[in-house]
């Protein structure tokens, strides 16, 4: 995926001021930056829940800038939104089935269900339980699992470790590396810099709606970008 000169925002408030970014297939690309840098807005603009203003998003030789979210899902793009957006009144199983809502995903439902249950065995145990009764960590796993049910080729995650206990964070991050092994491209927004630098293949740093640095994790360390923009 190649993003060129992307501008976006809410109402008349511009958040992104021309973002350029490339994602390598099968890799984990991390997106770091201080609060309010526009990381979530960037993910939402790529997915289409926020309508981008201008620029281009080239994916498999097609400009998908103005496609609505469900058409993005049809092309194998998934977003795991910030916070835990599970369907609390429905069972874990129903949540997962809704993840395979599009026709493309329904055809591969059995295989994906197997993958999801092997990644998060706890969800198999709890499949008949209402999602609202799960712990915070389990709900986050369910949100990720539900996105996997859509058979994504590119998976975007918005702060999946937010508010989770260290042990659960570890579990989520190891799941991400296993998802990468399945050949899924990952774009990861995180505050949890330490963990991200250990699993990411490439890093972009966003500040005030612009890309202000990029490189492999070791290059980011060397260039001191981490200190400059992330205060760590």
């Amino acid at each position: 995926m190649k993003i060129r000169d992307l501008e976006s925002g809410y109402g008349s408030v511009q958040i992104l001021w021309g973002v350029d970014m490339s994602l390598r297939e099968g890799a984990i690309t991390a997106l770091l930056g201080p609060n309010g840098a526009g990381k979530s807005t960037l993910l939402r603009s790529i997915f289409g829940t926020v309508r981008p203003w201008k620029g281009s998003i080239l994916y498999r030789d097609e400009d998908i800038l103005h496609l609505p979210p469900h058409r993005k899902v049809d092309r194998g793009i998934a977003l795991v939104p910030e916070g835990r957006h599970v369907f609390a009144g429905m069972t874990v199983k129903e949540n997962l089935l809704l993840g395979a809502y599009r026709k493309r995903a329904r055809e591969r439902m059995e295989g994906n269900l197997g993958l999801v249950f092997s990644l998060f065995p706890i969800l198999e145990e709890r499949q008949d339980q209402r999602a609202g009764t799960l712990s915070g960590g389990e709900q986050q796993m369910l949100t990720i699992a539900r996105s996997l049910m859509a058979s994504p080729e590119l998976m975007m995650l918005d702060e999946p470790s937010q508010g989770l206990a260290p042990k659960v964070v570890e579990e989520v991050f190891s799941a991400l590396t296993r998802i990468r092994e399945e050949g899924v491209t990952i774009l990861l927004v995180e505050q949890n810099v330490e963990n991200v630098l250990s699993i990411a293949d490439y890093v972009y740093i966003l500040n005030e709606g612009r890309v202000v640095g990029e490189g492999r994790p070791d290059e980011i360390e060397k260039a001191g970008l981490r200190k400059a923009y992330l205060g760590l």
Binding site: P69, V73, F87, G89, M90, E94, G99, T143, S147
Partner: peptide
Amino acid sequence: GMAIRAIMEDREGASCCGINVD
């Protein structure tokens, strides 16, 4: 029907499942 229930529960989550919310 399930898609509509999903929207009632969580609109953003529904959108992420590929449900055409509009």
